Lab assay of single mutants.
Amino acid sequence: RLGFCQHHDDEVLHLYCDTCSVPICRECTMGRHGGHSFIYLQE
């Protein structure tokens, strides 16, 4: 089961930031992890 983002309370962690080695949400890709390399996580 996927968890929720600690920075965006209502967002599920659907992605993994390869650059930072952390799970991220959709909102994170447009903010603090913008321009980073990421992949989609599987449930």
Rank of each mutant, 00 (worst) to 15 (best):
R1W: 03
R1T: 15
R1A: 06
R1N: 15
R1I: 09
R1V: 07
R1E: 06
R1H: 15
R1G: 14
R1Y: 14
R1K: 15
L2W: 06
L2G: 13
L2E: 15
L2S: 07
L2N: 10
L2R: 04
L2A: 06
L2M: 14
L2K: 09
L2Q: 09
L2F: 14
G3A: 03
G3P: 03
G3R: 04
G3N: 11
G3I: 06
G3K: 12
G3V: 08
G3D: 08
G3Q: 09
G3C: 06
F4Y: 07
F4W: 03
F4S: 05
F4P: 04
F4K: 08
F4L: 06
F4R: 06
F4M: 09
F4I: 10
F4A: 04
F4H: 02
C5Y: 00
C5A: 01
C5T: 00
C5W: 00
C5K: 00
C5L: 00
Q6T: 10
Q6M: 06
Q6A: 09
Q6N: 09
Q6W: 04
Q6S: 10
Q6E: 13
Q6L: 09
H7Q: 12
H7T: 08
H7W: 06
H7R: 07
H7K: 12
H7I: 07
H7Y: 05
H7E: 15
H7P: 03
H7S: 06
H7G: 05
H7L: 07
H8F: 05
H8V: 04
H8M: 07
H8G: 08
H8R: 04
H8C: 04
H8D: 03
H8K: 07
H8E: 04
H8Q: 07
D9E: 11
D9F: 12
D9H: 15
D9S: 14
D10V: 06
D10F: 05
D10E: 12
D10K: 14
D10C: 14
D10G: 13
D10H: 13
D10L: 04
D10I: 03
D10R: 13
E11K: 09
E11V: 09
E11D: 07
E11I: 06
E11C: 07
E11T: 11
E11A: 10
E11P: 04
E11R: 05
E11Q: 12
V12W: 04
V12D: 09
V12Q: 12
V12E: 14
V12H: 13
V12P: 08
V12C: 11
V12I: 10
V12L: 11
V12S: 07
V12T: 12
L13I: 03
L13R: 04
L13P: 05
L13T: 08
L13V: 06
H14M: 06
H14T: 09
H14Y: 06
H14R: 10
H14V: 07
H14S: 04
H14F: 09
H14C: 06
L15S: 08
L15W: 11
L15M: 11
L15Y: 03
L15G: 03
Y16A: 03
Y16N: 06
Y16S: 03
Y16D: 03
Y16T: 04
Y16Q: 14
Y16P: 01
Y16R: 13
Y16C: 02
Y16G: 03
Y16L: 10
Y16I: 07
C17I: 00
C17K: 00
C17E: 01
C17V: 00
C17T: 01
C17Y: 00
C17F: 00
C17S: 00
C17Q: 00
C17L: 00
D18T: 10
D18V: 07
D18Y: 05
D18N: 07
D18K: 14
D18P: 05
D18R: 10
D18L: 04
D18G: 10
D18A: 09
D18W: 03
T19D: 09
T19W: 05
T19M: 07
T19C: 03
T19Y: 09
T19P: 07
T19N: 09
T19I: 07
T19A: 06
T19E: 08
T19R: 12
C20N: 00
C20L: 00
C20T: 01
C20R: 00
C20E: 01
C20G: 01
C20Q: 00
C20S: 01
C20F: 00
C20D: 02
S21L: 10
S21Q: 07
S21M: 12
S21D: 05
S21F: 07
S21N: 06
S21H: 09
S21Y: 08
S21A: 11
S21R: 12
S21V: 04
S21C: 10
V22M: 12
V22G: 07
V22R: 08
V22I: 05
V22A: 13
V22L: 14
V22S: 11
V22C: 01
V22H: 15
V22Y: 06
P23N: 04
P23R: 12
P23Y: 03
P23T: 09
P23Q: 15
P23H: 14
P23A: 12
P23L: 03
P23C: 05
P23D: 05
I24L: 04
I24Q: 02
I24H: 02
I24R: 02
I24A: 06
I24G: 01
I24M: 06
I24N: 00
C25G: 02
C25V: 01
C25H: 02
C25F: 01
C25N: 00
C25Y: 02
C25R: 01
C25P: 02
R26A: 11
R26N: 05
R26C: 07
R26S: 11
R26Q: 15
R26T: 12
E27C: 05
E27P: 05
E27V: 08
E27L: 07
E27Q: 15
E27I: 08
E27K: 11
E27M: 09
E27T: 12
E27H: 06
C28S: 02
C28R: 01
C28D: 03
C28L: 02
C28Y: 01
C28K: 01
C28T: 02
C28V: 02
T29S: 11
T29K: 13
T29D: 06
T29N: 11
T29F: 08
T29W: 04
T29C: 09
M30Q: 14
M30R: 14
M30I: 11
M30A: 14
M30V: 13
M30T: 14
M30W: 04
M30S: 13
M30Y: 14
G31S: 11
G31Y: 10
G31M: 10
G31A: 10
G31L: 08
G31W: 04
G31T: 11
G31D: 08
G31Q: 15
R32D: 08
R32Y: 10
R32W: 06
R32P: 13
R32H: 12
R32L: 15
R32K: 13
R32T: 12
H33W: 01
H33M: 02
H33D: 01
H33I: 01
H33F: 00
H33R: 01
H33E: 00
H33Q: 01
H33P: 00
H33G: 02
H33N: 00
G34Q: 10
G34I: 10
G34V: 12
G34E: 09
G34N: 08
G34T: 14
G34R: 12
G34C: 07
G34M: 11
G34Y: 03
G34W: 03
G35H: 05
G35V: 04
G35C: 06
G35P: 06
G35I: 02
G35A: 14
G35F: 03
G35D: 13
G35W: 03
G35K: 04
G35Q: 10
H36R: 01
H36K: 02
H36M: 00
H36F: 00
H36S: 01
H36L: 00
H36I: 00
H36V: 00
H36D: 02
S37G: 10
S37K: 14
S37R: 12
S37M: 12
S37F: 05
S37V: 13
S37C: 07
S37N: 10
S37I: 11
S37D: 12
S37H: 15
F38W: 14
F38K: 07
F38P: 08
F38S: 09
F38A: 14
F38R: 08
F38E: 04
F38H: 09
F38I: 10
I39W: 09
I39H: 15
I39D: 15
I39P: 06
I39Y: 14
I39A: 11
I39E: 05
Y40N: 14
Y40L: 09
Y40D: 15
Y40R: 14
Y40V: 12
Y40C: 13
Y40F: 08
Y40G: 15
Y40I: 08
Y40H: 14
Y40P: 13
L41F: 13
L41S: 10
L41T: 10
L41D: 14
L41H: 02
L41M: 09
L41R: 14
L41W: 09
L41C: 13
L41A: 12
Q42F: 08
Q42V: 10
Q42M: 03
Q42P: 14
Q42C: 09
Q42R: 11
Q42H: 10
Q42Y: 04
Q42A: 11
Q42T: 14
Q42N: 13
E43A: 11
E43S: 05
E43F: 00
E43W: 02
